[in-house]
Design a protein around this nucleic acid. Structure first.
Lengths: 327, 327
DNA sequence: CTGAAAGCGCTTACAG
DNA sequence: CTGAAAGCGCTTACAG
């Protein structure tokens, strides 16, 4: 492997000069610069990144810690982050926290030890551990400690879904929320409920019931049953809005069991737009999370060290598919 | 940040000695060692990894390049690799090749430039580019160049599935293969076909038809239709074995369209055991890929530099679920 | 068994 | 604008 010394010798300049053209420093005059570049090409020179890291105390790597890369949403995020990082010729170091606060802490420290130039964390816990880091740290999707958070605008998305359902004429609606101890679940719920509140008038009232559960399939199925099973068809909601696609798919399953047609008897909506959303029958109307924008924004925060770090909520759009229809 | 010098001073020894206890070198005598460790603890000393990398020309990081981390199988692999690496206090640097040979090459080079101690690649192409690397490179699942391959024993798995179906009494079977230009598809197909061949006797013959397609849902649905739609029920196969879960799920969908009951009218099997396999109705009988073992074995290959690198095929097991039954 | 010292390959004030 | 030189924090022969 040729070193900076070799190219300096070949170009007949000092290593300082070579280093400066490497840094794309415009201080090196054209003729010299060309000579140096020619030498680099000829030797197929590649800078030793470890040496550079030792001097600058930072490498072209951004750290990413997610609860579980196996979760499709996090995988999508990871992919887009890797692509954004690559654009700036940075690599990404990946770590899983396995939804454990302790592991999360360890992983972040390990990343920091490796002198990454920043770390993006999709928090596993409400972990309020403050790391003394001299590089930017940003939370993605779920807030970590007191670091700035980039996330989907859950409130806004749920509002849009309320509008969608309202526009289809639904006036008897059930909302299945996630665990309201979680910020995400709360934002989504509040967005939906508040929007319905402003839409409902005395002359054209909306009946809304809210049911809290987990974010998963089973919870959706179970709550779907309590909502649909007991009541006569003229008292039954005409639409169920779920706080997650998984819940919504659970509702779909339960509707099938109850011989209810979706969307003829009942409209169903989710939130997230996971892959499964297009594989179920009927395909699910949902809010698509702006994954590319989230990733791009997170990477931006890492690199724009001059502008002050701050929270950012990015709007998602409703994706209309087969699971919703006019009443 | 305290350096090795600081702890040397505090412990009253030379930096060489500190470095030696750091290296878990047993050459340092007990009393000194203790003093050094005390100093390290007190100062909360952490070695500068970049400096170490510069000297040793290698960091405690293994590189991983996959075609697309968004693919659940690769995500599982990545997760397990990260866990295995963590056991040896190594991190993993992740890169996506986006199924592009050129990108793959670039990513591997980038990883190598960063002085990783080895790279694991799930090949995107049959990419026969040989990199001059002084660190181990191993292929996972899909062979890269001429590097050793760790993979599921596709041949064996398909044989087991043939046995399973045979044991249930099926004697009229259709096999849906993947694209036979791919090694994986070929191994799976050959395993199944050869096993059926040896099982079939003149007194108890098995009818087997093979249908080549892609590995995806649509291909399964389409081939399922050609297999099931044309024939009278007494000539129809009693089982369809697919080379992938996605194909099998496509078959399930088509069976439902044709009002055929699975598994009463027809048994259906897949290969891979993706998450969806347990979410479809009925749940899919399939071959589970030994993901943990694959990951562990790949990491082993990176670290066991003394034993010669070589191919390794790891057996998967059949997971019996609702989509198969006795005729 | 331990210390003194060279050196890994860069970057960056400091002069000129 | 360019060169000479110090130094980043380690590891590892080389002596003793």
């Amino acid at each position: 492997m040729p070193t900076i010394k070799d190219v300096a010798r070949k170009a007949g300049v000092s290593v300082g000069t070579v280093s400066r053209v490497l840094a794309k420093n415009d201080t090196v005059k054209q003729p010299l610069k060309l000579r140096v570049q020619a030498a680099m090409d000829e030797l197929d020179y590649k800078p030793n990144l470890a040496a550079r890291a030792l001097r600058t105390n930072s490498i072209d790597v951004v750290g990413l810690v997610v609860p579980d890369i196996t979760n499709p949403f996090f995988a999508q995020l990871a992919k887009n982050i890797e692509m954004e990082a690559a654009k700036r010729s940075h690599s990404v170091m990946l770590a899983n926290s396995h939804d454990d606060a302790e592991t999360e802490k360890t992983q972040i420290s390990a990343l920091l030890d490796r002198a990454v130039c920043g770390v993006i964390v999709v928090a596993a816990s409400d972990g309020s551990i403050t790391h003394k880091a001299d590089v930017p740290i940003v939370s993605l999707d779920r807030r970590f400690g007191s670091y700035p958070l980039i996330a989907t605008d859950h409130f806004d998305g749920s509002q849009k879904m309320a509008d969608h359902l309202y526009g289809l004429g639904h006036r008897r609606i059930a909302y299945i929320a996630g665990p309201l101890s979680m910020d995400v679940a709360r934002s989504r719920c509040e967005g939906f409920v508040s929007r319905i509140g402003t839409l409902s008038t005395t002359s054209d009232p909306i009946e809304l019931s809210v049911h809290e559960g987990q974010f998963d399939y089973d919870s959706g199925e179970e709550l779907g049953r309590t909502i649909l099973d007991k009541v006569a068809s003229d008292k039954r909601p005409t639409a169920i809005a779920a706080a997650s696609d998984q819940q919504a798919i659970g509702v779909l399953r339960c509707a099938r069991d109850l011989k209810l047609d979706v969307p003829l008897d009942i409209s169903v909506t989710g939130f997230d737009d996971i892959t499964l959303a297009t594989l179920v029958v009927p395909r699910l109307t949902t809010i698509r999370q702006p994954i590319e924008a989230l990733a791009a924004s997170a990477i931006d925060q890492i690199f724009e060290t001059n502008s002050p770090a701050q929270d950012k909520a990015i709007a998602g759009e409703v994706v209309k598919r087969g699971s919703t229809a006019a009443v």
